[in-house]
Simulated assay, not measured.
Amino acid sequence: MKNKSVFVVFFTFSLLLLGSISGPLSLMPSAEALKGQGVPSSQYGSATKGIVCGDRLCSEVESEVKKEEKKIEKKEQVKTEKKESEKKKLDDKAASEKARYDELSLPPRTIKTGTVTSVQDPGLGHESHQLAIILPPSEKVYRGLFTFTASEDIQLVALHGPLKEGEDKGQAIWSPDGETKYALTFVPLNAMAGTWQFAGNALAVHTMNEDPFTVSYSVAYRERTLSDTVKSETITSVQDPGQGHENHQLAIILPPRPYAYFGTLGFSASEDVQLVALHGPLQPGQGAHGQAIWTPDGKSFYALTFVDKETAMGTWQFTGNAVALHTMNETPFTVSYSVATGQ
């Protein structure tokens, strides 16, 4: 009986003890990790995957990674820009050395001074005019500087040619016999004195009067053999390949190249033309500052010098990576010209 009482007491005590433990346990939420003290979050354990990375938030780690990537990217960009800058310096140096070589290989410059009296212009249709020939027709291209003083107002004349059969297509023409034809650059300076930078196959001074005039002058020039950068020819324009210029016409005189040309152009066209020089190609970002831009493909960009003198003939002292003549018309034009580059 005594043993039975002890057993009952022990059993009752065990039930009470078990109840006191299981009660609080049933109130505890199922969790795999304790909630971080002071961090307001309703997510714990595996629910924090992608949020907590070790002892820091993943966003902090990602931010640091991005910063490091940007630093590396900037360093690479600086390296690339430095390489491009160094390459440009080398290219410029090579171009300078080539220009120096070209200068040394040029024919000697001729300088002469004279005084002449004009004669009747031998050109057909010019019989009532006067002409004083300064440099006679040549198969080579004259390029130089002419300074003069005359007894009356005069006009300046440069000839380009002789033209081949069928090349006279609207440009001004001068011919002594109707068979040998030259394109005519006629500059109505209408002054008694002045200076002219010229390029052509002949150079003269002209008046539209019947009475002779006298002109004293000095001229410095080189007589250049034809080459890729010394030309005397007649060409027909084509559709402008520049984006946004599809309705325009373009006659390329000197095609794009890495280093700049320096020279003189004399021309006579079948209609009024604009003068074009390109500079470049530009480096990335250089074409977004408001200057006029020309591009054939949206990848290579050139700064554009566009000069509208509203004339079909004239001369132009230029420098640039390409030179052309242009119209805003859809129909082709013809131009005869002489061009010579170098000093």
Rank of each mutant, 00 (worst) to 15 (best):
M192A: 10
Y217W: 09
H245D: 05
E271K: 15
L250P: 00
G263A: 09
I253F: 12
P258R: 11
G266C: 14
L184Q: 04
T180D: 07
Q274K: 15
H248M: 08
G298H: 12
G242F: 02
H279R: 11
S175F: 03
E246K: 12
I235W: 05
L184C: 08
S232T: 14
T295A: 12
T195Y: 07
G290F: 04
L265F: 07
F213L: 08
L203F: 06
T295S: 14
F301Y: 15
T185C: 08
I173S: 00
T214S: 14
Q239R: 15
G194L: 12
P212S: 06
A303P: 07
E210T: 14
H248W: 08
A202D: 04
H279K: 11
L184D: 01
Q197R: 15
T236Y: 11
G287E: 08
F306M: 15
T236R: 14
A204W: 00
Q197K: 12
L275M: 13
T185A: 04
Y259Q: 14
L254K: 01
M208K: 14
T236C: 10
L254S: 02
G298P: 07
W174N: 00
A269L: 06
L184T: 03
L189E: 12
R224K: 06
L250R: 01
V230R: 01
T229C: 09
S227C: 10
M208R: 12
D297P: 07
S227T: 12
R224P: 00
E223F: 02
G200H: 01
G200A: 13
T214Y: 12
H245G: 06
I252G: 01
Y182Q: 03
Y182C: 03
V238A: 10
H206G: 03
A183V: 09
I293N: 03
Q243R: 14
A260G: 09
Q286R: 07
F267T: 01
Q249M: 10
L189G: 09
T214F: 07
P284W: 05
R222V: 03
P284G: 10
K231R: 15
T229G: 03
G244L: 08
Q286C: 06
Q286T: 11
L265K: 00
P258K: 13
F306Q: 15
G266R: 02
